Amino acid sequence: MTSTDPFDSALDLLRRLNPSTTALNVQRLCTLSPSLTDDLLESVDIPLTTRKCRVTQRDFLCCDYNRDGDSWRSPWSNEFEPPLEESEVSEGVTPSEKVRKMEVRANEAFDVYRELYFEGGVASVYFWDVEGGFAGAVLLKKAVSPGGNSTGSWDSIHVFEALDKPPRQAHYKLTSTVILSLGTGAEGLGKMDLAGNMVRQVEQDMPVDDDMSHVANVGKMVEDMEIKMRNLLQEVYFGKAKDVVGDLRSIAPLSETNRDRATQREMISSMGK
């Protein structure tokens, strides 16, 4: 009789629960089995949380890439919130001076990007050193409550690795995750809860003139990926919902709809021949 891996069981359970409560479910699993905490936080994408930098008084996003124990590094001050204990100060992982300069420039650039595309929300960028280059995470979050019981949130997590490719190029590998949650409730319409995530990955070689070229290259890749994923989410969420509603109650008589579909199939079949 084979034993079941607790980590696999936890992931299997999360896949069967409501995506809108993933963060709460992960917290409960970590409480039930503390030994799985690090693995779950590294493997499960959950909506981003926000903290305030005590030095700059600016909000920043928290994720596993800027976490050290129960503290998170602020991209604005490069200090941890809450502060690490005196005995742990040397354990706080921060980027090298070269990578930190790129991180500062990237945060400035994506703060403009956030305002242009989201008109609000919070953006944070974190870089760290890896052998042969560097890696990073670009985080974006916006939550809205337009009124009544309607809510919505968008969380995007872009994790990339940039490896030097002499003489003047770099190889980028980008993994992007978007978590979308929509909810509404009214006496006349009832309650609707729509939540889920999408993951996409891309690799690309791009020219590099200096260190700051990395910021422009990553920015372009993230921008292109977000536009593609936004269009895909619109098609998956709303296009599919429209098809289902159309099958339940057609605007035109069903006889006309079925005749049009038969004509379409006939045309496709003749083109194949």
Results as ranks from 00 to 15, higher is better:
residue 11 L to I: 13
residue 32 L to S: 05
residue 34 P to V: 03
residue 34 P to W: 04
residue 34 P to S: 04
residue 42 E to S: 13
residue 46 I to F: 06
residue 51 R to L: 15
residue 53 C to R: 03
residue 56 T to D: 01
residue 58 R to S: 05
residue 59 D to A: 15
residue 60 F to L: 04
residue 62 C to S: 09
residue 64 D to S: 15
residue 71 S to Y: 05
residue 72 W to T: 03
residue 77 S to I: 02
residue 78 N to C: 08
residue 79 E to Y: 02
residue 80 F to L: 04
residue 81 E to M: 08
residue 87 S to M: 12
residue 88 E to Y: 03
residue 90 S to H: 12
residue 91 E to T: 09
residue 96 S to H: 08
residue 97 E to K: 10
residue 97 E to C: 08
residue 109 A to D: 08
residue 115 E to S: 13
residue 119 E to G: 12
residue 140 L to S: 00
residue 147 G to K: 08
residue 151 T to G: 06
residue 160 F to I: 07
residue 165 K to H: 10
residue 169 Q to E: 14
residue 175 T to S: 13
residue 176 S to M: 06
residue 176 S to C: 10
residue 181 S to R: 11
residue 183 G to D: 02
residue 187 E to D: 13
residue 193 D to H: 02
residue 196 G to C: 07
residue 200 R to V: 14
residue 204 Q to Y: 04
residue 210 D to L: 11
residue 212 M to D: 12
residue 215 V to Q: 04
residue 215 V to Y: 01
residue 219 G to W: 00
residue 224 D to N: 11
residue 227 I to E: 13
residue 238 F to N: 06
residue 238 F to A: 13
residue 245 V to G: 02
residue 247 D to I: 05
residue 252 A to M: 12
residue 254 L to E: 11
residue 266 E to M: 05
residue 266 E to G: 03
residue 267 M to F: 10
residue 269 S to L: 12
residue 271 M to I: 11
residue 273 K to H: 08
